[in-house]
Design a protein around this nucleic acid. Structure first.
Lengths: 217, 217
DNA sequence: CTCGAACCGCACCCCTCGTCGGGGGCGATG
DNA sequence: CATCGCCCCCGACGAGGGGTGCGGTTCGAG
């Protein structure tokens, strides 16, 4: 795996392609084996010159980088993809990750960092630009915070109440809950009343949201 | 900012401290200015030797690395913190991020990588070990997937229905929704009925969950 | 043993929710 | 213009959700 890493550069701007090829080709263990000027040209380019890593622009005239990434990842060879773009809007990032990209960098990254990213991705490591990493971290942290608060609130409940709360969180009706727990509907309602008071909320949908936040999907 | 980076090493194991200090002190632009053998010793160590970056173990006898991180980040100087541990359980990672850590690495990371992480964190860039980055990426991707599906479903709704659905997602009752939109309760109910059929769900809590997934908090 | 506390279970009553049917407005199609 | 479709609005009614009170159980403290 530690041989030279073969790279395909995909960008509609010839100048950008030339710049990337120039800065990468010949760098430690990297060789640029081809270029493509649009997403729809990528499969042919990969057929002609198999690559380990594809450097992919997003904004391209015919087929954009997201769908191109999806197609690349669907191939039997399945090279890794690094999406390389000017703006790091959350939309772009999430779509790219969902399409199967292993890396997401801004075009103004330092050349050394891009080369390093190519090698890392070829080795199976994911790479994100610092700003994106930061946003992902903050997102996970806030999510974990809500998670924690919700779990703390649910900890107040007794075992039965907890079961009922979880069932509510799955959108079940009282009758379904009663059948599932072998209870009378009246009992389920009583449990729900206690759950509402203990959690300090007014109706079952808020219970469902709390359970959802707690990660009990 | 590009001077030498001052590092404080915190670990209850003297051997680990020695190893880290040895591998870091003298590396490019890094100087280890102190060590601490437990979380409760960190403030004093920072008072004696101000540091830019704290390398923090999690498992320590008296005060663990998470709370120590929280205290470090609460200081006026507020050095950056890299949590350095043996296991990367999701619990640990999320708590560390929530406590304000800017980096999370495994102890078996290559020395060069740790040094690099110290410099990056000192420069304000976050650093995560590859496995954690991967999990965060997958998490974001799946979340984005649910997001997308939910938004697609909600796109079927008319403007009014959409408003009502969002209100349901906030746990509001029909009367509240009616007051908020200056409608009769009967009208709100009618909208909800159409929302239910269009979304293919049976009750309002499932609507709330869908709206929640769509990110319309 | 008894008492209190907490949990679980249930029946009754009232209010909200969801369905059904109907009416009016507005643009597109014939 | 007719009428078809879509959206918005509403009233009435059955069904389901939520509140209250009460009995039964367990368990530890007094």
């Amino acid at each position: 795996m530690s041989g030279t890493v073969r790279v395909l550069v995909v960008d509609d701007d010839a100048l950008v392609r030339a710049g990337l090829s120039l800065m990468l080709d010949g760098a430690d263990g990297i060789v640029v084996v081809g270029e493509a000027d649009d997403g729809d040209a990528v499969p042919a380019a990969l057929d002609a010159h198999p690559a380990d890593v594809v450097l992919m622009d997003i904004r391209m005239p015919r087929v954009n980088g997201i769908t191109a990434t999806r197609r690349v990842r669907a191939r039997p060879s399945a090279p890794e993809v690094i999406v390389l773009t000017t703006f790091d809007s959350d939309e772009n990032v999430l779509h790219a990750l969902r399409a199967g990209a292993s890396g997401f960098l801004l075009k103004d990254s330092l050349p050394a960092r891009i080369a390093e990213a190519v090698r890392a991705v070829a080795a199976g490591e994911p790479i994100l630009s610092p700003g994106i990493t930061r946003r992902l971290m903050e997102r996970a942290a806030t999510e974990a915070g809500a998670h924690e608060r919700a779990r703390a609130a649910l900890a107040e409940l007794s075992a039965r109440e907890h079961e009922v709360a979880v069932a509510i969180g799955q959108g079940r009706t009282n009758a379904e809950i009663a059948a599932h727990l072998h209870l009378s509907i009246a009992t389920v309602k009583a449990h729900i009343t206690r759950v509402l008071t203990k959690l300090g909320v007014g109706n079952r949908t808020q219970v469902a949201l709390l359970v959802h936040d707690a990660g009990l999907c």
